[in-house]
């Protein structure tokens, strides 16, 4: 049983490993980082949907995928290691904001609609990674996370 759980986890990570290998082979160019972000975020969200994971479990799934996502972003980032770290920070901020917003919107009541919305917003986040300035993107993501966190905190009370 333990082995089966570990195997399922490795199966979940296998497409992410393939994405990392693909990113290592492809020549860098515009669009790669945004596409990687959108594809990986959509994949993890769909996996979470099938696994019935929400809240903390869903956050944990995204955290497990984060090193693979950061690797892909780094391969397409400009500006060396500093640019790669900045891209990873932007991706973390967008994902955190999306997960908090999903929780604040009580998305578990309509899981399928929430999954579709999440994938659409992840695609928009990928485009923003390519087009928006890092400061603007980080600011917007943090603002969304703050608002969602405030809503969640009020509900807890």
């Amino acid at each position: 049983m333990r082995g089966a759980r570990a195997l399922r986890k490795l199966l979940f990570l296998a497409p992410l490993s393939a994405a990392a290998l693909l990113a290592a082979a492809l020549p860098g160019g515009p669009g790669g980082a945004g596409l990687s972000f959108a594809a990986i975020a959509a994949y993890v969200r769909v996996c979470a949907q099938f696994a019935g994971a929400s809240g903390g479990e869903e956050a944990l799934l995204f955290a497990e995928a984060l090193p693979f996502l950061a690797f892909c972003l780094a391969r397409f980032a400009r500006g060396g290691p500093a640019g790669a770290l900045l891209a990873a920070a932007e991706a973390v901020a967008i994902l955190a904001a999306l997960l908090l917003a999903e929780a604040a919107a009580r998305a578990e009541r309509r899981p399928l609609a929430a999954a579709f919305l999440f994938v659409a917003l992840a695609a928009a986040g990928g485009a923003a990674l390519e087009l928006a300035r890092p400061a603007t993107l980080l600011g917007a993501a943090l603002l969304l996370a703050l608002v969602a966190g405030y809503v969640l905190a009020r509900r807890e009370r």
Binding site: L66, R75, A77, P81, A84, L85
Partner: peptide, 10 residues
């Protein structure tokens, strides 16, 4: 993730 990003940067 941050370590992977720093080491994977071309």
């Amino acid at each position: 993730a941050l370590a992977a990003a720093a080491l994977a940067a071309p």
